Amino acid sequence: TTFEIRVGDLRITLHNADEEEIRWAEEALRRGIHADEILRTLEERRR
Rank of each mutant, 00 (worst) to 15 (best):
R11C: 14
L29A: 06
R6S: 14
W24I: 08
I12V: 14
R47D: 09
E43Q: 07
L42Y: 02
V7S: 03
R31T: 13
R30K: 10
A25H: 00
E21Q: 08
R30F: 07
R40S: 11
A28V: 05
T2Q: 14
F3A: 15
D36E: 13
R30E: 06
T13Q: 05
R45Y: 08
G32K: 05
A28R: 06
D9A: 05
A17V: 14
V7D: 05
F3W: 03
T2W: 15
R47F: 09
H34A: 12
N16I: 04
T1N: 15
E21G: 07
L42I: 14
R47W: 06
R46E: 05
V7E: 04
R11L: 14
I33V: 12
G8T: 00
D36W: 08
V7I: 11
D9L: 04
E4A: 00
L42P: 00
R23A: 13
E27A: 11
G8A: 03
E27W: 07
R40T: 09
E44C: 12
R45M: 13
I12T: 01
H34Q: 13
R46I: 07
D18K: 09
W24D: 02
E27C: 14
L39K: 05
T1G: 15
L10K: 14
A35D: 03
E26M: 08
I38C: 00
R40G: 08
R46H: 11
E44Y: 06
L10Q: 14
W24P: 00
T1S: 14
I38N: 00
T41W: 10
I33M: 12
E4L: 01
R30G: 07
R46L: 06
L10V: 14
W24L: 07
I38R: 00
L29I: 07
D9V: 03
R40N: 12
R11A: 14
E27F: 03
I33K: 09
L42S: 02
R23F: 09
V7P: 00
G32H: 06
L10G: 03
L10E: 14
I12K: 01
I33E: 08
R23S: 08
R40Y: 06
W24C: 04
E4C: 07
E20A: 09
V7Y: 12
R47A: 10
R23G: 07
E4Q: 01
R23W: 08
R46K: 12
G32L: 06
H34M: 12
I22K: 05
E37D: 13
R30N: 07
L39I: 07
L29P: 00
G32Y: 03
R31L: 11
E27S: 10
D36K: 07
D9K: 03
D18Q: 09
R46C: 07
E44R: 07
R6I: 15
L10Y: 10
R40P: 03
R23Y: 07
H34R: 09
R23N: 07
R46W: 05
V7Q: 02
A35R: 04
V7M: 05
T41F: 11
G8D: 03
I33Q: 07
D36A: 08
G32M: 05
I33S: 07
F3I: 15
L10N: 10
H34L: 12
L14S: 01
F3E: 15
E26H: 05
R47E: 11
E4I: 03
L29F: 04
I5T: 04
E37I: 12
D18I: 12
D9Y: 02
A17Q: 02
T1M: 13
E19P: 10
A28C: 11
A25K: 00
T2P: 11
I33G: 05
H34W: 08
E4G: 00
A35E: 08
T41P: 01
E43Y: 06
E26W: 07
I5H: 01
W24E: 03
I5D: 15
E19S: 12
I22G: 04
H15M: 05
A25Y: 02
T2C: 15
R45C: 08
H15E: 05
R11T: 15
E21K: 03
A35V: 11
G8V: 01
